[in-house]
Design a protein around this nucleic acid. Structure first.
Length: 432
RNA sequence: UCCUCGGUAGCUCAAUGGUAGAGCACCCGGCUGUUAACCGGGUGGUUGCUGGUUCGAGCCCAGCCCGGGGAGCCA
């Protein structure tokens, strides 16, 4: 055995040279005196050729024994070849078996969703899932780069919390040394405290919703990034959102084109995602929907179908602002000229991917916030610290939360968010 | 919680109320350029569970279990 250890993604730089690739057998085809081993190493996939009269009998026999997903170190000469997927292939001189895999459950044929999700730990090895994971990784880095480059400070919020952020959503309850604690459904309230400390803050982490939601857009555990800015208004908040979303989409488009192509994503639709984004008021949204045949009436929240109808009227994400106060959370700042609506907005992704951002301006007046807590039948005690923020140098401020999985699903063009997170937590699924 | 569709070989699926099938995977054999290779042979079943109707149930009926899609809620 000889040859420098090289990753498949760099094979092009080693044309004509002897190298070693360390990886797993993705697939195998044989034809009597010639065998094709398709090896993946995490960075790519390369076809390796084993010729009977160019290797020893032992090597040829060993290659024949290899099973799907067996771990190997293969040595051979890099050669560009049009017949090889990827453009380069390896003519093998040696094979070292690291581990002979048992019969692998996931075959190159079709599988159902339940079977694949039961084998999620193995499904991650497939090409499509690789592409999604890489895009997710790039997207998260883009989110953080964007905020870090603009002076935001990462201030993480706790996962274990004493109370609900919004009284409405069901929370996962756990025991905290004989008192109750809840898994965080949002880091926002803590992000507000952080913004009052450092001016521009964001938190990024998992959030938990115990709602028995069973749709392609819902997970019980999902990741959310939540920027919060002091001295900001709903207007500047929407400016930030469109800059933010444009940046991450264009970054993924630049850096992950091969992955998007593998997923057969229509790139032109992503290319169109640049500022400014259309902004329509809730009032206008209701009118547009009624004209389109919806039976929605003013005061009702937009349903999933409504969101899709609206989003389809634009070629980029659309921001719907100033929803009725009655259907929004207790901390939303009312419009001073129209208290029946609040200064907030949602961002709806195109192509029916639904709401990817929810945000708005927060109440900064102490008395009004107390009144709202009371109106929402929320206890004051757990929110004492939150009310404190309105007692010591309270300023207008705004922020938003973006769901990572829905955003990845949209950018990748996936039918379901379960493929956008390594190990999805869903209704009826907490394995593997 | 509600609506809707489904559960048959390891996987994906067929089977008028009348002998349980195919493709793939796996095993054996053949093939020096395969691309989900191909060709021949073989192994493989408590038809989700319980009860009922019937001479006879994978199929019809009831209940339950499990899963897919959707609603509500939200990101």
């Amino acid at each position: 055995m000889a040859g420098e250890h090289v990753y498949v993604e760099n094979l092009g730089q080693y044309d004509g040279r002897a190298v070693t690739v360390k990886g797993w057998i993705y697939h195998k085809r044989s034809s009597g005196k010639i065998q094709f081993l398709v090896v993946r190493d995490g960075t790519g996939i390369v076809q390796c050729v084993v010729l009977k009269n160019e290797v020893s009998e032992e090597i040829f026999a060993l290659a024949q024994r290899l099973t799907q997903e067996s771990a190997v170190e293969v040595t051979g000469t890099v050669r560009s070849d049009k017949r090889a997927p990827g453009g380069y292939e390896l003519t093998l001189t040696g094979v070292n078996l690291v581990h002979l895999a048992e019969e692998y459950p996931i075959t190159p044929k079709e599988h159902g969703v339940e079977f694949l999700m039961d084998h999620r730990h193995l499904w991650l090895r497939s090409r499509r899932q690789h592409a999604v994971l890489r895009i997710r990784s790039t997207l998260i880095k883009a989110c953080r780069d964007f905020l870090d480059d603009r002076g935001f400070i990462l201030v993480d919020s706790p996962i274990l919390t004493p109370a609900a952020v919004e009284g409405t959503t069901t929370l996962f309850e756990t025991d905290y040394f004989d008192t109750k604690a809840y898994l965080s459904q949002s880091g926002q309230l803590y992000s507000e405290a952080a913004a009052m400390a450092v001016g521009k803050a964001y938190c990024f982490g998992p959030t938990f919703r115990a709602e028995k939601s069973k749709t392609r857009r819902h997970l019980m555990e999902f990741w959310m990034i939540e920027p919060e800015v002091a001295f900001a208004t709903s207007e500047t908040n929407m400016d930030l959102q469109e800059q933010f979303v444009s940046y991450i989409v264009q970054t993924v488009l630049e850096q992950r084109k091969p992955e998007l192509e593998l997923l057969e994503r229509e790139l032109s639709k992503l290319d169109a995602v640049r500022p400014p984004f259309p902004r329509i008021s809730y009032d206008e949204a209701v009118e547009r929907l009624q004209q389109a045949g919806s039976d929605i009436i003013w005061g009702e929240d937009l349903g999933g179908d409504d969101e899709t109808v609206l989003a389809n009227q634009f070629d980029r994400p659309v921001m719907v602002y100033n929803y009725p106060t009655a259907i929004k959370a207790f901390y939303m700042q009312p419009n001073p000229e129209r208290p029946e609506v609040v200064l907030c907005n949602d961002m709806l992704a195109p192509e029916g991917y639904g709401e990817i951002i929810g945000g708005g301006q927060r109440i900064h007046d102490y008395d009004l916030l107390r009144q709202r807590l009371s109106e929402h039948n929320l206890p004051e005690e757990p929110y004492r610290w939150y009310l404190d923020l309105r007692r010591y140098g309270s300023v207008p401020h705004a922020g938003f939360g973006m769901g990572i999985e829905r955003t990845v699903a949209w950018i990748c063009g996936l039918q379901h968010v379960r493929e956008t997170i390594p190990f999805a937590r869903m209704l009826n699924r907490i394995y593997p």
